[in-house]
């Protein structure tokens, strides 16, 4: 659906030139929610703005739905942009227009007949739950309501792609949650491809199928969210995931404390249905080792349940060895920590 090839963006010239993106390649499938996470200044904003060419890449190609946008003339580009919706951190609504007129804006650009505009806008107002606020001006709305107007406006021209530029960063946690649920809804309802950038791992975890981690203008890691989230490889990715959890220095102390009978600490990762099964106690019961849970998370990534436990097995080394291989045989991922 979206293909970025060798995307490079350099701001300025000569000595003061700053490289925002260097040779980014990315492939986004139709109907998926693709997240790009990175710190501020990592280049994620430039990246998403290159997709609809609000920012012209210095080098590289942008392909959307089989068309190379970077090759199009001005009016052809305007045509193709109508099929790419975008929402923004600061909503960017017309302050002089009502909710209704803001949503109607893209339709009026293409001289849509009045009756058709009215039908579409009413439909969208209902979809985002703002029917009662149709006559209000943006200044009279809360942040979450403004973003709903932004979403409705972006959907008005029936786009194939929705770009979300830090769409929830200016919102409080509850509002963020409701906006994310709305995005997930429209993704399912219209099979809409969504690309979002964020600096919050929670956003990625809640709704994304795949994620790319951007750092210093390049993609340092990408893959399915379950893989990247549970088995982060790059230091920056680990940092994003750690910032979700608490301070783990007490855990480290517990891990390295000497144990009288001999013990091994392992990190066990459950994914999918296995998360809710009693595999661990069954296996440990069979091999006769005791275990203590030192740290653990059971949660979901999008709709996939997962669990990650740090467990200390206590008993003789052989029995512990058998426990670990048995767990692995049951399809759990076991990593020995000490």
């Amino acid at each position: 659906m979206i293909e970025l090839k060798g995307l490079t963006k350099v701001y300025g010239k000569g000595g003061s030139a700053a490289t925002a993106l260097s040779g980014v390649n990315l492939n986004i499938e139709k109907g998926e929610i693709f997240g790009v996470i990175g710190h501020s200044g990592a280049g994620k904003s430039t990246l998403i703005r290159c997709i609809n060419l609000l920012e012209r890449p210095t080098k590289g190609e942008v392909w959307v739905d089989g068309t190379e946008l970077t090759r199009l003339g001005k009016s052809q580009l305007q045509e193709h942009r109508r099929k790419i919706g975008m929402i923004f951190q600061h909503f960017n609504l017309l302050s002089s227009a009502t909710v209704y007129d803001n949503i109607a804006f893209p339709l009026r650009l293409t001289h849509t007949p009045k009756a058709a505009v009215d039908r579409k806008v009413n439909e969208l107002l209902a979809l985002v739950g703002l029917t009662e606020h149709r006559g209000k001006y943006p200044a009279q709305l809360s942040g979450g309501q403004k973003q709903r107007v932004g979403i409705a406006r972006a959907l008005a021209s029936d786009p194939d792609v929705l770009l979300c530029d830090e769409a929830t960063s200016a919102l409080d946690p509850q509002t963020t949650d409701s906006i994310l649920r709305l995005l997930l809804d429209i993704n399912k309802q219209f099979n809409l491809t969504i690309v979002l950038i964020t600096h919050e791992m929670l956003v990625i975890q809640s709704i994304c199928d795949r994620v790319a981690v951007i750092h210093g203008g390049g993609i340092v890691e990408q893959g399915r969210v379950t893989d990247v989230f549970l088995k982060p490889k790059h230091e920056v990715t680990k940092e994003f995931i750690r910032s979700e959890a608490q301070d783990d220095s007490p855990l480290l102390a517990a891990l390295h404390a000497p144990h009288p009978t001999g013990a091994t600490a392992v990190k066990i990762t459950f994914l999918g249905e296995k998360t809710y099964e009693s595999t661990l106690s069954r296996v440990a019961g069979g091999t006769g080792v005791n275990f203590a849970i030192l740290q653990g998370t059971i949660s979901t990534i999008k709709d996939t349940p997962y669990g990650q436990l740090i467990v200390r097995f206590e008993g003789d080394a052989k029995a512990i060895g058998r426990t670990i291989s048995e767990l692995a045989a049951q399809g759990l991922d076991v990593e020995v920590l000490s």
């Binding site: 942009r81 790419i84 609504l93 017309l94 893209p106």
Partner: peptide, 12 residues
């Protein structure tokens, strides 16, 4: 930002 949003929607 508002101008950019309009550009993004294909406004001339």
């Amino acid at each position: 930002g508002v101008i950019e949003a309009a550009q993004g929607m294909g406004a001339s």
